[in-house]
Amino acid sequence: MKQNKYDEAEFFDNYSKMARSVQGLDAAGEWHELQTLLPDLKDKRVLDLGCGFGWHCRYAREQQASSVIGVDLSENMLQRAREMTDDPQIQYKQLAIEDIDFAPGQFDVVISSLALHYIERLDTVYAKINDCLVEGGTFVLSSEHPIFTARAAQDWHYGPTGEILHWPVDDYHDEGKRVANFLNQDVVKYHRTLATHLNELIKAGFAIQKVAESKPSPEMIEQVPGMRDENRRPMFLMIAAVKV
C-alpha cells in the first residue's frame, strides 16, 4: 500500500507545524542517538528513503558526503525540501520506497528515518536496499518501535484525573496493519515484532551492527514539557546494519 497522506492539505499543514518540521534534527528526540549509528559520511554516496524535508540529506552533505539522493512519495515534502536546499550534489526524486530501482552498488550508505512503519512488505524493500549498496555498505534506519505500534491506539493508559499510568502493550505477536490516529487523521501503519525487524534484515543479507531504542537526551528532558515520560517506553527503534 502506497499511502500519501502528506499531499493532503490539512495533514501536511499540521505536519509542517511540528517541532521537528520547523527546527529540524535538533528537535527530533531520537536524533542524538540515531546520529551515533551513522558511519563516516565523508566522500560517501548516500540514499535517503522517505527524505521528507531533506534534513538528513543536508546533514550528509555537511558531513562531506560526495552526493545524496533523497526519495519521497510526497510532492509537498519534496517541494519543501527543494526550497530548503541549495546544493547541486543533493537530488530529490518523487518515488515510493517500494518502487526504488537503483543500480547495484550505487550507494555506500542508505538512511531511512521514520518511514518504514508505513511499508507493508519490508522483505522486498530490504532486498532492494541491499542490492543498491556496495559490499560493506551501511544501512541505518529508524522506525516506530514495536512496543509503540502493537496497539493501534498508540497512547498511554490514563487514570481518572487524566494522569499517565502506563503504556499498554497488547496483540504484540499479531503482526500487520494498524489504523492509528496521527495529526487528527487515520493513518495506516504496519506493526511487526522486534524479531521480525532484525530477521528480515538478516535474510536480506545484512549483518546487524548496533540496535538502539530511543530515549530523550537530558537536555530535552529539561527543556521540553512531557519529554520525561518518553523514558517510560521507547517510541522509536533504530538499527545499523552492514551488507555482507
Rank of each mutant, 00 (worst) to 15 (best):
Q23V: 09
L34M: 06
F139G: 04
A195L: 14
F148G: 01
M84L: 15
D108P: 11
C132V: 01
I100V: 04
I147P: 05
E213H: 10
G137A: 03
M238N: 14
L73R: 11
T161P: 00
A96Y: 03
I147H: 03
A115W: 02
G54N: 03
F182H: 15
P146V: 09
E135W: 06
S142I: 09
G136L: 13
A9D: 10
D108G: 10
E10F: 09
D40T: 09
L38T: 03
Q154L: 07
K44T: 11
N14M: 07
P234T: 01
D72R: 04
D186I: 00
E222I: 08
E8W: 04
A207G: 00
V46S: 08
L114H: 06
A19D: 13
L198Q: 00
A65C: 07
E62L: 13
I111P: 00
D72Y: 10
T149N: 07
E62T: 11
G52D: 04
V244E: 13
E144R: 07
I164K: 12
E200G: 07
E163F: 03
M220C: 04
K44G: 06
R233A: 06
M227R: 08
K243T: 00
A27M: 06
K5P: 13
Y6P: 03
H191C: 14
I119K: 07
S112H: 12
L25D: 00
E222L: 13
S143N: 13
R82W: 06
A152K: 11
L198I: 15
S66E: 15
N76Q: 04
Q91T: 12
N231L: 15
D171R: 11
E222P: 00
I129G: 02
V110R: 12
Y15M: 06
Y118T: 02
S214L: 10
M1Y: 08
T193R: 04
Y126V: 00
N231W: 01
A60D: 03
V68G: 01
R232I: 05
Q79N: 14
P39Q: 14
R45A: 05
T124Y: 02
T85V: 05
E213R: 11
L73C: 05
H157T: 14
H145K: 04
E135C: 03
A60S: 15
E135T: 13
S67N: 09
V134P: 00
E200R: 12
A241Y: 08
I111C: 05
D174G: 05
A96L: 02
D40L: 11
A195V: 13
H197F: 15
D229S: 14
W156P: 14
H32L: 02
I164M: 13
D43H: 15
T85S: 09
R232S: 12
F11D: 02
L78Y: 03
K44M: 05
H191P: 07
R228A: 12
E98D: 13
D72K: 07
V169M: 09
L73V: 13
L41H: 01
D72W: 06
R61F: 07
R58H: 02
N231I: 10
I164E: 15
A127R: 01
N76F: 14
Q79W: 08
Q23N: 12
K177Q: 04
A127F: 08
R121G: 14
L141M: 15
E163P: 08
